[in-house]
Design a binder for these strands. Sequence first.
DNA 1: CAACCGCCCTGGGTGC
DNA 2: TGCACCCAGGGCGGTT
Length: 275
Amino acid sequence: MRVGLEGHVVGRTLSSVEVLHPRAIRRHLPGASDFTGRLTGRKLVATRRRGKYLWVELDGELALLAHLGMSGQLLVQPVGAPDEKHLRVRFRFADDGPELRFVDQRTFGGFLVDELVTVDGADLPTAIEHIARDPMDPAFDPAAFVTALRRKRTELKRALLDQSLVSGIGNIYADEALWRARLHWSRSTERLSAAKAREVLAAATDVMREALGQGGTSFDALYVNINGQSGYFDRSLAVYGQEGLPCGRCGTPIRREPFMNRSSYFCPRCQRRTK
DNA sequence: CAACCGCCCTGGGTGC
DNA sequence: TGCACCCAGGGCGGTT
């Protein structure tokens, strides 16, 4: 998504911004008129990503920060193309070329305009100062992650989802990484060996790299790239959403258990629960 | 302070 | 056919 966006918007100047649903900018506390006011006339300089956050650097040390939530899409569409049913924000450009649209059925996604701050050598929007580097980041420190993980006193999957430890891992990639590392989601972080911690991190990194290579995960057909095409990593899922189907390693039916008001999928034989 | 819970929201699917 | 209900997801405020 970031790469696609880069090719379409970098170097262009915003001429108008239209907020069609207030929830899409709920994290921009000064409100819609401030949001559009700060963006209008601004030039887009670069696209950046950290974990699940995406932002566009603007001239003037500002950033347009986005989180797509679970159903958010950024689409490039010709001016005048029919509005999508769930169109939430429209960005138009001074060159009158194709516009950028934020389409989001479930309205978990959204934007804010934010100032940049330097944290540990990286320029970040202030709102995401607490978000850790993701495993694709060249400056990501695996050893520091392992140390921080083992200092936690919680369940392993909770820690993998904690975006202040490592970012970019959500419910799907956590389950896939745990299956690859043969660890149950409820394993305690403080009793996890450093070797096992490294293993689950490596598995998560592999899952993310493979998913990126395939354009992401689109199990519910709501995830699409900048051209409206879905990723197809869902074809590669070993456990997520596979309840009752045989484990690819041992054939035991995959099980689903409630976890934090959602679900964890795992192989009950490969991923034994420990005390 | 760390850990944890519940809520935000929409629409597709299911069961009655 | 229509209605009530459930579920998916990430992040954050509030509570323990």
